[in-house]
Design a protein around this nucleic acid. Structure first.
Lengths: 225, 225
DNA sequence: ATTCCGGTTGAACAAGTGTTTAACCTATGA
DNA sequence: TCATAGGTTAAACACTTGTTCAACCGGAAT
């Protein structure tokens, strides 16, 4: 995806270097000088092109957001989602910078992070809607909160990827912790829960339902983990 | 929990101020001067007590870790878990600083974050183990990856709490985004998935299983979201 | 009372930060 | 050919950062 270096305009090269550094070190730790050095350019030029460090971040936000938005639209076609994942698994390095950047945006307080999260939620909502109509996904009374839960669970693999691969004992070089090895170990357990459930019966569910319906004011009796 | 101010030793007051600021602004954005000011103390004294900013962080890490470890041990008693959650819901402000600090630790690269994540995983593992023996949780062949998945899903509520409450339209003052309103809206959907599953049948699961068993080399056919 | 020592401060320092400015180079258009 | 404009740089600026240092205070020990 990232073209092989200097056939890009200088402005784009600076932007890409900033995306890489912001994703790796975070917005505050990454310095204008480091961005300039990575782009092979003087610090002054960075300011000249983007006005300020905040302006540079704004440009990075918009670029990454546009980038992922087009991928999201392709993903809406249910057939291509498998192809997309396979594409990612075949050469994950392609997307690592964008992924790291998005993870940082989700953690930092950032408009881009907000937009990305909301996009994932609505995408989950669409998938659930069509899945219910197609009969592959169970029917839910109110799909909105279900979409939120599924989105959060899915994004956990992104925000916690480093810990997941670490705790699974996967040797580090998987970028962002999300790589073939990790997915191969966690896909089946997750799908099993998503298919047959986690609890053996409805005891926890009915208990929580009664507690929540009983007194709507405050104390909900909660699930185990 | 936090005692009401100045009955603490100066060192402890500095440490607590640092925990608050590190959690709110992140380690690099929070300055030694801000910590000193919050603790009503001079910047030099902070260094005098902790040697350096990194030393201060180390002390904060250890303190928060010890704090949550004792709570974790209490939580191991299955009966008290509900009590603990109810306790939290009744006055969440009590733990907000520790929670914010842990969230930052999970995102930043940090030994404390690693330790906390691993602790949550093993705690999930214990809960699943006893749950299986008690018959409340389905039997899994290999509980370790299941515990990792459950831990990641649970911690998603922590790392993404801000986005969850935001996307649900909950007015902001819920600390860290995790409050009664959010839990009330998401508990039942999550428990329903954990009880009856998300997919309507085993199509996705068997497809993934075949794909993973078929060629162990690389391409795993993945689930929808 | 005097000494001493740990907690504490204020000012200073050195390094690093984002940003500005004046000058430079190069290519394009008149 | 010359002037102009825009991309580019090196140096400087103003400020913040973590950290150091000498001095100060107050109380406990001698």
């Amino acid at each position: 995806m990232r073209s092989n270096a200097d056939d890009l305009t200088t402005r784009a090269r600076i932007r890409d270097a900033a995306i890489g550094l912001f994703g790796r070190d975070g917005f505050s730790r990454a310095t204008v000088r480091a961005v300039a050095s990575d782009a092979g350019v003087s610090p002054g030029l960075v300011i000249h092109h983007f006005g300020s460090k905040a302006g540079l971040r704004e440009a990075c936000d918009q670029h990454v957001l546009k980038q992922t938005a087009t991928q999201g639209r392709e993903k809406a076609d249910p057939g291509s989602t498998g192809r997309l994942i396979q594409d990612y698994l075949n050469n994950p390095e392609q997307y690592t910078e964008e992924i790291a950047y998005i993870r940082r945006s989700l953690g930092d307080e950032s408009d881009a992070g907000d937009a990305f999260f909301d996009a994932v939620v609505t995408q989950c909502q669409d998938i659930i809607q069509t899945g219910i109509e197609a009969g592959t996904i169970r029917k839910f009374d109110n799909i909105r909160p279900v979409a939120v839960v599924i989105a959060a669970n899915s994004l956990a693999f992104l925000t916690l990827g480093r810990h997941l691969s670490r705790t699974l004992g996967i040797p580090s070089p998987e970028p962002n912790g999300i790589g073939p090895d990790m997915l191969r170990q966690l896909t089946l357990p997750l799908l099993e829960i998503y298919t047959h459930g986690f609890y053996s019966d409805a005891r926890f569910l009915t208990a929580a339902r009664e507690a929540l319906e009983g007194n709507n004011t405050n104390n909900g009796r909660e699930h185990a983990p």
